[in-house]
Design a protein around this nucleic acid. Structure first.
Length: 665
RNA sequence: GCGCCUGUAGCUCAGUUGGACAGAGCAACGGCCUUCUAAGCCGUGGGCCGGGGGUUCAAAUCCCUCCAGGCGCGCCA
């Protein structure tokens, strides 16, 4: 459809220039409310009317005349208050769709794009909030690749932070285990079939409880929480201490749990940068030198932040709410803040730090693809990591402020281009609906009852674990599959059920616009009807079914059907002004534009919506226009072509969202 | 206090750079399985688009203001 737009734009721009001598830069298009009004509309006459002091209808009429005999158009006409409605040359358009589909993918162009997502603290199981993050980040990465970009996906592992320390406190103080004890615990959990990260989910919340119940410290004394934490963090810094070994071991095991969970929904990464290696490679010290040299970071002599190294942000009114317009990067006790480390990491991602990690292979995916992680030392051959041209940080909206500070620091260092190519992909959190909280037996305080949602809390163990939701989905899907296909092997049934579960989950995570809080609800998330992943999957499965049967009846391979179908005369498409066949074709043409707009706006709900509308159009076609029974050979070939186009396009589209297409449903 | 986000049908949500009569799903009600898979399709009902001003030929969309709710603004991460 893009080529038709380009041709129409060219003609209209030339006409406006020659006849009205008005400066118009580009032509806007929109879709008519109903297909019988046309396939595309131009509201240009409304814009010109004011300047020309002429009725929009008269202008639109002239514009329509100027479009006579445009290649790709059957006709153009004035309509409504002054629209120019365009009607496509349908056979030509359809053949073009097929060419577009068969074109080989263009080789990757441009600099590397880094997408950072998931970033779960390795101290507990992933929950549904993490699933939203991963689903968005993974979809972004897939779309960027589709659009011909080179993409590197990073999942940052904070293996030395407070959260891991708290877990270690649970192991050492509540469970009173040493490393040997941890290994025995793992063996026992393994025997019970209980994942380690699920166990840690509970233990972590017990630690929080212990801190809360500890008698409050007397003035001038550290609380139990502060004392245990600082002791543990200190011990973790000494790489050889028993607690450090426990921390490193648990973080590693839990990361592997997260990888497995994410693999269940088809999410993969290229690199796991680890905080411990950022420390080991002294990234912060290097970033600190750069920041000090810029003159924008200095030691605060007085005021509230006396004794801290602070970044001066007072020149930018965006940061007016910061105390004294400055942000602490190094505390008075010499330790680095979270933002400080983030700045160093962001500099590395752009290749601006002048330093790199060492790397080692961490995990091998089923097709032999290797997931790497950073390491302290080693000279192993590895792919180049970092040095991205554009960086997407997929982090929920609550971190917007800190992300702004990170980007501002790039600007202060003079890296204006990089600051502009640092993109915070912000999205709203996943919370629990009151009903969901009640179902899970989570105590809801009186003042929270009237709220539309309840925030999750990893610290308190309040939330729905990703694996549990997936298990639920698979179980439900299996029941549905079994009730429809009684003769399936349990292996096939499981395979189909897993595909449906992933489809339902990923669609659910994408269907809301990103700045909408998802108030998670089991009955919504477990639904397979209406606007859901399985609805869309079902449409593709049906289309594949038709193609298989047609191919069999013709003794052809499915792959040869398109060529066979092209021998037909597609003229019948022009006969009816509207109809399910043409509506489907019309929507199919919006595929690429939809992906592009989704990426530009970081709004993947538009992709989900598009897939749903496309599936609706196919279902309407399916019910009204039989393919196998169609007696007219041209129409039959046309419908086969249509079915083929839908099947291929939708499979690609679903893949962009990480939604698999099961062989049957 | 300052900043950001949200408010559209009973519920959950869409709504293109302002454009043609405000849409979808769920729920409710009524139909459709000797016809390529009924996880589907067709139909019915249901809305001062939070309130009020303004800009415009045209406002759910842009501006101002008010109301309601949420989230940020640490020497936490």
């Amino acid at each position: 459809m893009e080529w038709i737009k380009a041709e129409v734009s060219r003609r209209l721009l030339a006409f406006v220039r020659d006849h009205y001598s008005l400066p118009v830069e580009s032509i806007g298009f929109l879709y008519p409310p109903t297909p019988d009004l046309g396939d595309l509309a131009v509201p240009l006459a409304f814009d010109l009317a004011k300047q020309l002091r002429k009725a929009p209808r008269l202008i639109a009429s002239d514009l329509a005349d100027a479009l006579a005999d445009t290649p790709g158009l059957r006709r153009a006409e004035m309509a409504g208050g002054g629209y120019v409605n365009l009607f496509f040359d349908r056979p030509r358009y359809t053949r073009f769709l097929l060419e577009e589909l068969q074109a080989p993918p263009a080789p990757a162009v441009g600099g590397k794009v880094i997408v950072e997502h998931t970033n779960i603290n390795p101290n507990k199981a992933a929950h549904i909030g993490h699933l939203r993050n991963a689903a968005l980040g993974d979809t972004l990465a897939r779309c960027l690749r589709f659009l011909g970009r080179r993409v590197e996906v990073q999942n940052y592992i904070d293996d030395t932070g407070v959260q891991v320390a708290d877990l270690v406190i649970g192991i050492s103080h509540l469970e009173k285990l040493d490393l040997q004890g941890v290994l025995r615990l793992e063996a026992e959990l393994e025997r019970q079939g209980r994942p380690l990260d699920h166990y840690c989910w509970d233990l972590y919340s017990r630690v929080t409880e212990m801190f809360e119940q500890a008698p409050s410290a007397s003035p001038g004394e550290k609380s139990l929480q502060d004392r245990l934490r600082s002791d543990t963090l200190h011990a973790m810094e000494q790489g050889n201490s028993p607690l450090a070994k426990i921390a490193a071991h648990l973080a590693d095991r839990i990361v592997r749990c997260h990888l497995r969970t994410m693999l269940r929904i088809g999410v993969r990464y290229n690199l796991l940068p680890r905080e411990s290696d950022i420390l080991a490679h002294r990234f912060w010290e290097k970033a600190f030198e750069l920041l000090k040299a810029s003159g924008k970071v200095a030691l605060a002599r007085g005021g509230k932040n006396a004794g801290c190294w602070v970044m001066d942000l007072s020149s930018n009114p965006e940061f007016a709410s910061l105390t004294e317009g400055e942000k602490v990067l190094v505390r008075s006790n010499g330790t680095v803040t979270y933002v400080g480390k983030d700045i160093a990491y962001q500099l590395w991602k752009f290749g601006l730090l002048g330093s790199d990690f060492h790397y080692r292979p961490y995990f091998t995916y089923s097709e032999g693809e290797v997931l790497w992680t950073t390491s302290r030392e080693g000279e192993q051959e590895h792919p180049p990591f970092g040095s991205g041209e554009t960086i997407y940080n997929v982090i929920d909206v609550r971190q917007s402020y800190l992300q702004q500070i990170v980007m501002e620091s790039l600007r202060l260092l003079g890296h204006t281009r990089q600051a502009e190519h640092s993109i915070h992909f912000a999205y709203e959190m996943v919370a629990l609906s009151p009903g969901c909280a009640a179902e899970m037996g989570i105590p809801v305080r009186e003042e929270e009852r009237s709220r539309p949602f309840l925030e999750m809390s990893g610290r308190k163990g309040i939330g729905v674990k990703a694996d549990d939701l997936l298990d639920n989905l698979v179980r439900r899907a299996e029941e549905e599959v079994a009730s429809r296909n009684s003769d399936l092997s349990s292996e096939t049934r499981g395979q189909v059920a897993r595909a449906i579960a992933v489809g339902a989950l990923r669609y659910y995570m994408l269907r809301f616009t990103r700045n909408k809080i998802i108030a998670f609800d089991f009955s919504d998330a477990l639904s397979f009807d209406g606007e859901t992943g399985p609805y869309v999957q079902y449409a593709v499965v049906r289309s594949s079914g038709i193609l298989t049967k047609v191919a069999a009846s013709l003794s052809l391979e499915v792959g040869d059907l398109a060529r066979w179908a092209l021998d037909g005369d597609l003229g019948f498409l022009d006969e009816d002004v509207r109809g399910e066949e043409w509506e489907l074709l019309s929507v199919l043409g919006r595929h690429r534009l939809t992906v592009e707009q989704a990426v530009v706006g970081l709004e993947f709900s538009a992709l989900a919506k598009y897939a749903f509308i496309l599936a609706q159009k196919f279902n309407a076609f399916y019910h009204r226009h039989p393919v196998l029974q169609e007696p007219d050979p041209d129409r039959q070939r046309g419908r086969v072509l249509l079915t083929h186009l839908f099947q291929r396009r939708m499979t690609t589209l679903l893949d962009l969202m990480g939604i698999p297409v099961p062989p049957l449903m």
